[in-house]
Amino acid sequence: MSTSPSAPFLDAVATRRTIYTISNETTIPDSKIVEIVQHAVKHVPSSFNSQSSRAVVLFGDAHTKVWDITLDILKARLPADMYAYTEGKNKGFRAGYGTVLFFEDQTSVKGMQEKFPAYAAAFPVFSQHTSGMVQFVVWTALEKEGLGASLQHYNPLIDEEIRKAFDVPESWQLVSQMPFGKPTADAGEKTFAPIDERVKVITA
């Protein structure tokens, strides 16, 4: 990567990885983690400036409660052999320092649908685009601060119990869960498909 103005940003994008093995330790204060999430939710663009993204940041017992809820629900639904595999993964997430829950506020989405009916069918998709950007910004920023994270999707199985446990508004739709903590092992090797097959350049 060159030393152009965009180089630090692009380097951060490249070095962000999925980290599953994390400890109940942090490299930065809780206040800084909250600041990162707030910054992402505030500044990431949204269609028609709908500002539909929401987040809940969990530390301590609140963090472990997410994964206790998830395990209880999965245990009741999965065959024993499948649950054994999932249990190991979830205990790894539970061993982390915290979790960020990402939501999209359906009140905001429906408001946009009513205001711009010609785009009504597209607004739920636009909402997911915004959420994906928020998640990526938080993930990349945590990585730059020395924390490891991964992105999980146990919704909609856990939605109702999460809503009850953390007093989440009914209109907030759970999108993903991001457990994080101090990495205890490196990410695995990442492979790439040929970039020329994935990006076309047209000049005329």
Results as ranks from 00 to 15, higher is better:
26 T>Q: 10
82 M>R: 13
5 P>S: 09
16 R>L: 11
59 F>N: 02
34 V>I: 14
68 D>P: 02
34 V>G: 02
56 V>K: 13
78 L>I: 06
62 A>M: 11
77 R>F: 07
108 S>Q: 14
59 F>M: 11
192 F>Q: 10
126 F>N: 09
167 D>V: 12
201 V>C: 04
186 D>P: 05
189 E>N: 10
16 R>M: 11
105 D>I: 03
148 G>T: 03
119 Y>F: 15
14 A>W: 06
184 T>F: 01
64 T>L: 11
79 P>M: 10
149 A>D: 06
13 V>W: 01
159 D>P: 07
172 W>H: 00
55 A>F: 07
5 P>Q: 10
175 V>I: 15
71 L>H: 00
83 Y>E: 02
54 R>C: 11
106 Q>W: 00
53 S>V: 14
46 S>M: 11
153 H>V: 01
50 S>Q: 13
135 Q>M: 14
146 G>T: 03
157 L>N: 05
105 D>S: 01
168 V>W: 02
40 A>R: 03
41 V>T: 06
8 P>K: 01
153 H>G: 07
97 Y>L: 09
162 I>Y: 01
95 A>E: 10
30 D>C: 12
49 N>L: 15
69 I>E: 08
61 D>S: 15
95 A>G: 07
118 A>W: 03
70 T>H: 05
9 F>E: 08
35 E>W: 06
185 A>H: 09
85 Y>I: 14
167 D>A: 14
196 D>M: 10
170 E>L: 10
73 I>E: 11
17 R>P: 10
71 L>I: 07
90 N>W: 08
154 Y>W: 13
161 E>F: 00
121 A>Y: 02
131 S>P: 00
118 A>L: 15
74 L>I: 00
136 F>C: 09
179 P>E: 09
5 P>K: 04
120 A>L: 08
62 A>K: 13
7 A>P: 07
124 P>L: 08
192 F>V: 07
29 P>W: 08
110 K>P: 02
48 F>S: 15
44 V>G: 04
155 N>R: 03
200 K>Q: 13
203 T>Q: 13
133 M>G: 06
120 A>Y: 04
185 A>S: 14
24 N>D: 15
55 A>P: 05
147 L>F: 00
61 D>N: 13
52 S>W: 13
120 A>F: 06
157 L>G: 02
22 I>S: 00
20 Y>V: 05
144 K>H: 06
153 H>A: 09
152 Q>R: 06
156 P>K: 00
176 S>M: 09
52 S>Y: 06
93 F>R: 04
189 E>P: 05
13 V>H: 02
108 S>E: 14
10 L>G: 03
78 L>N: 04
99 T>F: 07
3 T>A: 14
190 K>M: 13
87 E>F: 05
161 E>W: 03
135 Q>D: 03
82 M>Y: 10
100 V>K: 05
82 M>C: 01
172 W>Y: 08
174 L>Y: 01
3 T>E: 15
52 S>Q: 15
108 S>Y: 11
146 G>P: 08
97 Y>Q: 10
7 A>R: 07
121 A>L: 11
98 G>S: 07
129 H>W: 07
35 E>F: 08
47 S>Q: 12
163 R>G: 06
97 Y>G: 01
105 D>K: 01
114 E>G: 07
162 I>H: 01
196 D>I: 08
20 Y>T: 05
40 A>Y: 03
28 I>Y: 06
19 I>Q: 04
84 A>Q: 12
183 P>K: 04
155 N>E: 08
182 K>E: 07
140 T>Q: 14
39 H>C: 11
137 V>E: 13
